[in-house]
Design a protein around this nucleic acid. Structure first.
Lengths: 243, 243
DNA sequence: CGGTGGTTTGAGCCGATTCAAACCTTGTGG
DNA sequence: CCACAAGGTTTGAATCGGCTCAAACCACCG
């Protein structure tokens, strides 16, 4: 009944706080109670009452918002080991939807339990706090992309970010698993699927990237980074700052 | 040497954690050591080494990024009582610049002191944590605006957000102080100053808003909210969720 | 009175959108 | 093994929202 948490989960948390017995226990509990979702299923639907936070034990997911006119904006892509739905705890209702991109396993922690936990195991909230700070930097980069970068740069930047984050969390580097469809990429970058397709095509022709089915190959990382103004620093904490 | 902190500061923190003697002391200390800045001065410059976090005791500020081509993207507008530069603690260097919009008073807390403090007074980090969660919701709204809303909606949304936040933090409702220039609005919304001007002109002609010098009057809040798809819920926590 | 910082306006242009249709692939069932 | 969905990708032509750049304008301040 009590698994050891999968590598992705412990790896992620241990980037932020030291992981001892009690932390391992907690993560194990969260993981062993995880529910399974198929790909492209709704985990949280926007606006619904909800008072849990969630741990993505395995698989990829996307947080997004749907506008009245039907268009969709992805807010962030979630990789294994990440946490989501913190806003549910704070608002009591989900401000944005969450959808699986691949098959997933998702653990959940009720507001009640969370409140007990954070007193008993402060390092848990500390980890979440630091995650928030780092994820905010990613959010900033998205804002910059959406506000001030042309289509080419937006797309390059997204691909590089995801590829780098995969590398960090232990998934392979040059051939990254990539469950996003071109429509998803469009919804991340604030573009149209049609246009994304054209740009992606042009990038392929120039030997920059190759976006195969469920797989991404970054062929010329430097050129791409130049287009995008991509500097991976924001994905890497200064080790000394995490006391 | 030890002031009582100004209303804006305590009001803001007390939205998130109960404020007792020790908290009041801390905030007072932060405020009394505050440095004064004139309007339109750089407080933090992007990329510079930095290991403090800051408290905006008084005045307005903006966080932003500058791109290689010289264009600027504002990441968020800061009101009195808010905290910034948390990323400096985590990265050891500033990922984005911060600039005053009005005359300001800014208190600062070194990484050293912060680390001592958070063990001694956990409610402080708890408050920051909750602030992060709520500010993230604002960030999401910006992403949605930049990615999927047309110019009219972006501008309406920004104005309503700021007006509402002012109301919350105790500044008046229908005539909001508004130190942003049209260039600033453009840099928030990912548009051009010229275009912002046109839209603002059209809005004025239709009796929706009036953007005077350093002052904003929202004349037809409902119509504006309809354009923007503005739902202020995201600015208001569910009270029961903040135990 | 001239400066300075901010606003307004115009004409031409371009990046990205729209919408629809065709085209692949991959898995499913007959 | 073929046929047919179903989901995703590719393509085209017409259109438009928002950009560019430059110049004029305005109000406040010293």
């Amino acid at each position: 009944m009590l698994d050891t948490p999968p590598g992705a989960v412990t790896r992620r948390f241990s980037r932020f706080v030291p992981i001892g017995k009690p932390e391992l226990n907690l993560l194990g509990r969260l993981c062993s109670s995880a529910e399974r979702f198929e790909a492209r299923r709704t985990v949280i639907s926007e606006g619904r009452r909800c008072d849990c936070m969630y741990l993505l034990v395995e698989g990829w997911a996307a947080e997004f918002r749907i506008l009245p006119n039907g268009s969709r904006q992805v807010l962030r892509v979630r990789l294994p080991g990440e946490v989501f739905g913190l806003d549910c705890l704070a608002y009591g209702t989900a401000l944005n939807g969450v959808q699986t991109l691949t098959e997933c396993r998702v653990g959940c922690l009720s507001a009640r339990d969370y409140d007990l936990l954070r007193l008993e195991l402060p390092s848990f909230e500390r980890a979440l706090f630091l995650m928030l700070v780092f994820e905010r930097a990613i959010g900033h980069e998205w804002i910059v992309s959406l506000g001030r970068r042309p289509a080419w740069s937006r797309i390059s930047h997204l691909l590089l970010e995801i590829s780098e984050r995969c590398a960090i969390s232990g998934l392979s580097t040059d051939r990254t698993p990539f469950p996003l469809t071109q429509q998803d990429v469009a919804d991340c970058t604030g573009l149209t699927m049609g246009y994304v397709n054209r740009v992606l095509g042009a990038m392929r022709d120039r030997g920059l990237v190759l976006l195969g089915p469920r797989e991404l190959a970054v062929l010329d990382r430097d050129a791409l980074a130049r287009f995008a103004g991509f500097k991976p620093r924001y994905l890497h904490p200064a080790p000394e700052s995490l006391a």
